[in-house]
Amino acid sequence: MFAAKSHTSRHYIAIVVMACLCVLLGGPSYAAGAESLIIAGATYCEPGVSGPGWAWTDADHLELNGYAGEAIGADGDLVLTLAGQNSVTESHAPDADITLCGMEVWGNLTLRGTGTLTATGSQCGIHASQALVVDGCTVDARADGADITDEAVAGVIAGDMAVRGGGRVVAAGAGSGAGVRAYGVYLQDAGLGAGAAGCRLSVDASWLDATGADGGVACTGGSLVSARFVTVDVHLKVVRIVTEN
Rank of each mutant, 00 (worst) to 15 (best):
A190C: 11
Q188P: 00
D135Y: 10
G222V: 02
A119S: 15
D189F: 03
I126Y: 02
V163D: 13
A96G: 08
A172L: 01
I148F: 08
V180Y: 08
T138N: 15
L100T: 06
L111I: 02
I98P: 00
G121S: 05
G107H: 05
D140V: 06
T116R: 04
G212F: 04
A143D: 09
L192Y: 09
A174N: 11
A141E: 14
G121L: 07
A194T: 05
C137A: 09
G145M: 05
S206N: 04
C219I: 01
A182R: 14
R181P: 00
A196L: 04
C199W: 01
V156S: 09
T138M: 14
G115H: 10
G167R: 09
D160L: 01
D189T: 09
T118S: 09
A178R: 13
V156R: 07
A196E: 13
G113H: 08
R200P: 00
T99R: 03
D97P: 04
A194E: 05
Q130L: 00
A218N: 11
G212Q: 07
W207L: 05
A213Y: 03
G216Y: 06
G184W: 07
L208W: 01
A213C: 03
E104D: 06
A182Q: 13
D135K: 11
T114N: 14
S202R: 07
T116S: 13
V185I: 14
C219G: 10
C137G: 02
Y186D: 14
C219P: 02
G155Y: 07
E104P: 01
D189M: 03
D204Y: 03
R181L: 14
G167E: 10
W207K: 08
T149H: 12
V134T: 07
A119R: 04
D147M: 14
R164W: 02
T220M: 12
V133H: 01
A190K: 01
A210G: 02
C199H: 08
D189C: 04
V170D: 14
T110N: 11
S202K: 03
T149A: 13
A146E: 15
R142F: 09
C219N: 11
G155N: 07
T114F: 14
A146T: 15
V169Q: 05
D214N: 14
G102F: 12
R164D: 04
G212H: 05
D97M: 08
L187H: 12
Q123I: 12
T120W: 00
V169I: 11
A172P: 00
R181F: 06
G191N: 13
V203L: 14
S223T: 09
G216D: 08
W106H: 13
G115P: 09
E151D: 15
A174Y: 15
G121F: 08
W207R: 12
A141S: 15
T116I: 02
A96H: 09
Q188C: 06
D160G: 03
D160T: 01
